[in-house]
């Protein structure tokens, strides 16, 4: 979907990748990134038109956990605010829609996850069909491994490519080769990471005023697969491709994509997404290290948008793609296409 109003990422901050923030509460983790994006633009909360966040109670083990993080925003006087119970990339989508309506010119988007509080692969079993799947407690690594096996069987990839993808994302020790759930090895799976991220969006001239080189969101869209793995083709992600198409990723008149940040917590999913999204050899995938390097669940997708925007704003990229996912084996997929003004 291309927009009738130009909206851009004008600031982005994230906590240091690869950290487990043991002694911090959610708000203590979120506060610094909020201050950083506001500080970068000189805005204060009362001058931001809309605020939207993404997080999940099941990571924290507490109901209404997002209400405590709101303490970091400074919601006084009262703010126009919303929250999605999923990755912050969808919070950004909601904020983008709000800006499109013209009801706001700026939006603060943030997300956080503290998966170190629980056993993440086990926690994620609770997002499966509660009648047929959840009673078997199939953990997220096992489901990704079933998908990886399907890719290997189909000849789409091989274990060498998976290992090379894992190595590119992060320097692994000898334990990287140890089996996780085969065919996945530990290096194919994300480390436990806590973290938070924040993005400031602005429309039109406001965006130009707030930063030197806005990363314009040329399109953003998200699509859904069926839930059950057994009815899907696990070697493909048609919903990701459809979202990319709707976001204008394949616009023949546009400049070529230079960078793609893919929300692929497993090496096999990065391979799958490159193929499903038809990313050519010329596209630099996950220069940030991607979700394989740091996976602060619920912030990971928003970080992809932030990182892709950084490549446009500071890395000289003309055009970049960002992808976020939610649900088992890439059930939901969001794609944003970001562009800088011609320099």
């Amino acid at each position: 979907m291309s927009a009738a109003r130009d909206i851009a990422v004008v600031a982005y901050a994230r906590t240091a990748p690869g950290t487990v923030t043991g002694d911090l509460s959610e708000v203590e983790m979120v506060l610094p990134v909020l201050r950083e994006v506001l500080g970068a633009t000189g805005l204060t909360t009362d001058r931001v038109g809309f605020v939207c966040s993404g997080s999940c109670d099941y990571l924290a083990g507490r109901a209404f956990s997002f209400t405590m993080a709101l303490d970091g925003v400074g919601a006084w006087p009262p703010i126009a605010e919303s929250h999605v119970e999923t990755d912050g990339a969808w919070a950004l989508y909601e904020a983008w829609v709000k800006l499109l309506t013209g009801a706001a010119d700026t939006a603060l988007v943030y997300a956080w996850g503290k998966p170190s509080a629980g056993d993440l692969p086990e926690v994620l079993t609770r997002q499966l069909d509660p009648y047929y799947l959840a009673p078997l407690w199939p953990d997220s690594v096992s489901l990704a491994a079933l998908q990886a096996r399907a890719l290997l069987d189909a000849g789409v990839t091989d274990e060498r490519e998976l290992a090379a993808t894992a190595r590119r994302a992060r320097v692994g020790g000898p334990e990287a080769a140890e089996p996780a759930v085969l065919p996945l090895r530990r290096g194919d799976c994300p480390p436990v990471t806590d973290g938070a991220a924040a993005v400031l969006l602005a429309a039109g001239d406001t965006a130009r005023m707030l930063c030197e080189r806005p990363a314009w969101i040329r399109g953003i869209d998200h699509r859904t697969e069926p839930h059950a793995l057994g009815v899907r083709d696990l070697t493909d992600a048609p919903s990701a491709r459809l979202a990319a198409e709707r976001a204008g990723a394949y616009d023949p008149a546009a400049a070529p994509l230079e960078v793609a940040e893919l929300h692929a917590p497993f090496s096999s999913q990065e391979v799958l997404l490159r193929r499903a999204l038809r990313l050519g050899e010329g596209v630099c995938v996950n220069p940030s290290g991607g979700a394989l390097a740091a996976d602060p669940v619920m912030a990971t997708g928003l970080i992809r948008i932030g990182e892709a925007a950084e490549r446009v704003r500071h890395g000289g990229a003309r055009r970049a793609l960002a992808h976020a996912t939610s649900g088992p084996c890439l059930q939901q997929n969001l794609v944003a296409v970001l562009e800088g003004d011609p320099s």
Binding site: D119, P138, A145, L146, A148, P179, V181
Partner: peptide
């Protein structure tokens, strides 16, 4: 079997206590 994954360390609640394969079966 249409796909499978070898689970060397079953977790609490999973169908078998000994190492097993997750399978998608048609």
């Amino acid at each position: 079997v249409t796909s499978w994954a070898w689970n060397p360390a079953p977790r609490r609640g999973q169908p078998l206590a000994a190492p097993f394969a997750w399978v998608l079966v048609r």
